[in-house]
Nucleic acid binder design. Structure first.
Lengths: 198, 198
DNA sequence: GCAATTCTATATCACTTGATCTAATTTGTC
DNA sequence: GACAAATTAGATCAAGTGATATAGAATTGC
């Protein structure tokens, strides 16, 4: 995906067309502009994100507590981030500078998903199941911790790590649940409620 | 910084020159090429990162244990990431696709800093002071958790949060120490060894 | 004070960009 | 098979790209 590799401006319609094995004017025929193509691509990627998270959540034990629900969300998001590095790459490309495109994404895709995580976090906070961390701090810490390894996969490879190895992904998900969602203080440190996947 | 806002390809030498209130050919006069300018900019930004981390570390209580040393590193990095969002923006722009520029950064700047954190982590792991997490998983989780809020500051603002507010930054640093470096299992959950900074 | 050097400004190079126009081709329907 | 609609292909547009050539203006060293 050209938008993920280089960002909107640097992705030329000719290279996009070439990657799709067609000609450059086809983009303006089937979409009204480069920006309309970009929006269609993002809608599609967010659909795939939702589908991927639902699929991975379904493979996990059903959650009981509010903390369990967050653990499922965290594990599902880690797996989805590994499956769809393009999406988080585009997000980080677009989120570094204010723009109409950023406003479009935030209104249409980011805010609803942020509210979902914030609501889950508030519920777990209310019962004292998770550490005393504000939801805005938590959101960016969690999303950043879950996505960077896959966004920066080419860098990780140069450092000698294969972040697309299933073993890495599972260890990564385990680590985030262990750190952000430790078992309640009165219990032992290890999280034991959720099973590990794949 | 134009490179941080749009990435290397999308940052035109004319807009860079305009931002510096000069003419476009000056870039090829004072530097040999656009790429040479970019390398000079990165060397400068990494110098500022090191200086910023040293300055913030000096303002914290002197560490005693290996875990304390990591806590100082984490807090210093959070503050530096907030101070220098441009650097992590460039890093994330460049790390999404293999390139000669990425190899140059990793060899010159990333790998030495990764080794530093990995070494500190291994030392704390050896004494059982930190959770059982592999250093590669830890590195990307920690860097991602510490930097995304500032890299994506324009997005956070649209969500109604000001991640450049000193109160956010301190809460953020506290949260990362609390989660990634919880007090040893035998002690209470809250981190108490390091003071909070401005 | 004046020449040598360094820096700045303008014009221009070949090339790439997103978009559009027009003609050729394929597809769908009877 | 015929005809209309949808799609594809090629050519071309003005605007923007990094780099360079050249001439003018400051600055430096003596």
């Amino acid at each position: 995906m050209e938008f993920a590799a280089h960002g909107f401006e640097a992705a030329s319609t000719r290279s996009i067309a070439a990657a799709a094995d067609t000609q450059q004017p086809q983009i303006n025929y089937h979409f009204e502009s480069k920006e309309a193509l970009w929006k269609a691509a993002l809608d599609h990627l967010f659909d795939r994100l939702d589908e991927s998270m639902r699929r991975h959540a379904a493979a996990l034990p059903a959650p009981v507590t509010a903390r369990d629900r967050l653990a499922v969300t965290v594990r599902s998001f880690v797996h989805a981030a590994a499956e769809l590095p393009e999406l988080n790459r585009i997000m980080v490309h677009e989120s570094t500078v204010p723009s109409d495109r950023l406003r479009w994404i935030v209104d249409r895709h980011t805010r609803p998903r942020f509210e979902l995580v914030a609501t889950e976090w508030r519920a777990a906070r209310a019962t004292g199941e998770v550490p005393p961390i504000d939801e805005s701090v938590l959101y960016y810490s969690l999303v950043g911790a879950a996505s960077l390894a896959y966004v920066n996969a080419p860098e990780a490879e140069l450092l000698g790590y294969n972040t697309l190895d299933p073993a890495f992904i599972v260890a990564h998900a385990d680590a985030l649940v262990l750190t952000f969602l430790p078992a309640p203080i009165s219990e032992p440190q290890r999280p034991v409620r959720e099973g590990t996947t794949t």
